[in-house]
Nucleic acid binder design. Structure first.
Lengths: 120, 120
DNA sequence: CTCCTTAGTATACAAATTGATACTATACCA
DNA sequence: TGGTATAGTATCAATTTGTATACTAAGGAG
């Protein structure tokens, strides 16, 4: 999944599959949610932990790093103690918001057990 | 990922996260691609194998079965020899096409020169 | 001097997902 | 009798993903 830029050569079928490319960027287990919560402004590391208590620190770090690598997310470090790091969508990341919002709409509509109180 | 209906109880944070629900349905490694190729009509098992040569038979079966379980895909078995099975989007599955097509557009736009240029 | 904070890393391990290969059924064709 | 075709299963190995726990830095509070 993470080897987009390394070695497909001519054998891979990803070249002609834009849908798969997109899912590769936003399809990680937590990426969609993280992206979703960054739409309405930057978030700190511990804010994500509060929003999604079931994601572990390691996974949160890994997923944010991948989003950063892909140029989707900007990581702003404030050299303070205690440390402060803010994550926000880059200009490139903003181009994903229509997809995220459409996915939000679809999920809201068809998720049966919706006591969904999250509004952006 | 597959335990949506079984046991989150009150601890899970998925309840209020429509984006994650949607990604749970279409975010499997191959689901988006399969869905994408079903938009323009039903496809047979071996057609998918030809379209995505890098998906194994087992994965193809598993992903199609999950899509079927979720009511996204209809599986029509023709009792012939050699067997013939056709997969197509259900009416419910059709509701996903806007998302898939948006993902296709995004992927098409940014997959070649990822992170290089942002043009609208 | 020790504890608290944040935003992580490091390590070890467990679980889930994915892949490779071999195998099945059954009618037709020669 | 053997080969072809399709749509799968079965089995095991490898990879990926996730969890748990301990640890770091560095300033401020007590």
């Amino acid at each position: 999944m993470r080897d987009r830029e390394s070695g497909y050569g001519s054998t891979g079928d990803r070249e002609g599959c834009p849908v798969e490319y997109t899912l590769d960027v936003i399809g990680g287990k937590w990426k969609g949610v993280l992206l979703y919560h960054m739409i309405d402004g930057s978030k700190r590391f511990n804010e994500f932990k509060r929003i999604c208590p079931s994601i572990s620190q390691r996974m949160l770090t890994l997923q944010l790093r991948e989003l950063e690598e892909d140029g989707i997310v900007h990581r702003e470090v404030y050299h303070q103690v205690p440390p402060k790091v803010e994550y926000s969508l880059t200009e490139f990341g903003q181009t994903l918001t229509p997809i995220i919002l459409l996915m939000k709409e679809w999920g809201k509509k068809y998720q049966q057990n919706s006591q969904c109180s999250i509004e952006s």
